Simulated scan of single mutants.
Amino acid sequence: MHRDAAPSAHEGQAQSAEPSIEDQSSPVSTEGLQERILARLDDDKAQDIVLIDLKDKSSVADCMIVASGRSHRHVGALADHLLRLLKDLGAGKARVEGLPDCNWVLIDAGDIIVHLFRPEVRVFYNLEKIWSVDSPHRAAAN
């Protein structure tokens, strides 16, 4: 008489195609982290999300992400969700500035710097104009 072996504890469970965040033993690459940050901001309804490539412009970081929240509370929630994401992905040592007021929150995650603004504060500082090669004021100067 032939008897089938009982399934092991792991065989009976469904296997997912991708490992969960908790299963990842090493931190995500810069490109992967950048994609996850952009996706999180999009999911959280951040406004005017801009990615600025800094690889040939600065030795401080590889890229900068600038986004707006609708209010102090929205900017704070965006920052909180990004900090949780960074921690879950093994990049939890990010430095943060501006959380108490939530007018402009800066999250320094090493190779990626994230700036979260209230819209009127973003217009005032206009970081995209400072870092962007193709900004309108530079084109007008030529």
Rank of each mutant, 00 (worst) to 15 (best):
G110C: 06
G98F: 14
H137D: 09
D108I: 10
D44E: 15
A77T: 13
L83T: 01
V114F: 12
Q47W: 02
H72S: 10
N103G: 04
L51C: 02
H72Y: 06
E22Q: 15
N103T: 04
A77S: 14
H115T: 03
A94N: 07
D56K: 15
P7K: 04
D53I: 12
R118L: 14
Q24Y: 04
A67G: 03
C63E: 00
T30G: 07
L89H: 08
L89S: 13
G92F: 05
W104P: 09
G110L: 08
K129H: 09
R36N: 06
Q34S: 14
D80F: 09
I107R: 08
G110V: 08
A39K: 15
S16I: 05
V75G: 02
I21Y: 12
E22G: 00
A61V: 05
I113A: 05
V50F: 06
L89C: 14
V75Q: 02
S26P: 00
Q15V: 15
C63W: 01
Y125T: 02
G98A: 08
A39C: 05
K57W: 09
S25W: 13
D101A: 15
A67C: 10
A94I: 08
L33V: 07
A79V: 09
V50Y: 05
L54K: 06
R95A: 07
G69N: 03
P27Q: 00
D134V: 02
S26C: 03
D111T: 03
E31F: 13
L83G: 06
L106K: 04
D43V: 12
D134F: 11
